[in-house]
Amino acid sequence: MKIFTAPAIYIFLKDSHSEIRTRYALNALLMFVVTALALVLFSVGNEVVGTDVLSGILWVIIFFSGMSGLSRTFVSEEERGTSATLQLISRPTSVLLGKLFFNFVLIFSLNMLIAVLYQLLVNRFVVLTPSIFWMTIFLGSCALASSSTIIAAIIAKANTRGTLYPVLSFPIMLPLLLTVMNATRLSTEGAAFAEALGEFQILISYTVVVVTISILLFSFVWKD
């Protein structure tokens, strides 16, 4: 295991350093979140909107902001022409794990930001069971990162990257999106933590299945 994880940590560090230096994805992501939130606030206005709809909108914002930033991990390697070096110096599994971890950190911090802003700005969205809500954000981020990483690896090798990413991701992510939306709705209804356990089980098993299949298939995608 160490043979895969140690290089993976270096790849994660490399990506974080290069992200902090260039702010390749970060700036665009932050602006996207602000724009999307503002749009929602304008369109909602003074209307009375149910919490079902609001918990759906929260995940629509998260899905599309993830779509605008998560593909960068692999696309930037292809665009800068650095993927060949990466192929030479490390095993495919380490690359995948490193990128996966980077994507997770990115989407998790982004989701925390969105969740906090959303609760502050959308007055009618009141979370009654914070434990369910934050657990959903955490497990949802794990699941989103796992499926978006392998899809990003696929589209990095295709020609029309930008438009293809949401098209390929949506059918894969739909079971996960429906689950997190339902769990968020539960948290606004003041359900007990135990009631959302089924949702968490789905999210955990989804993450495990997708990560496993990604590790098995990644070398086919990665090697030219």
């Binding site: 499926s147 899809i151 696929i154 059918p171 894969i172 079971p175 299945v209 997708v210 299949i213 298939l217």
Partner: peptide, 11 residues
Amino acid sequence: AVYSIIAGVTV
């Protein structure tokens, strides 16, 4: 092929 396998496990 990779895409159809991933889709196959998530469906």
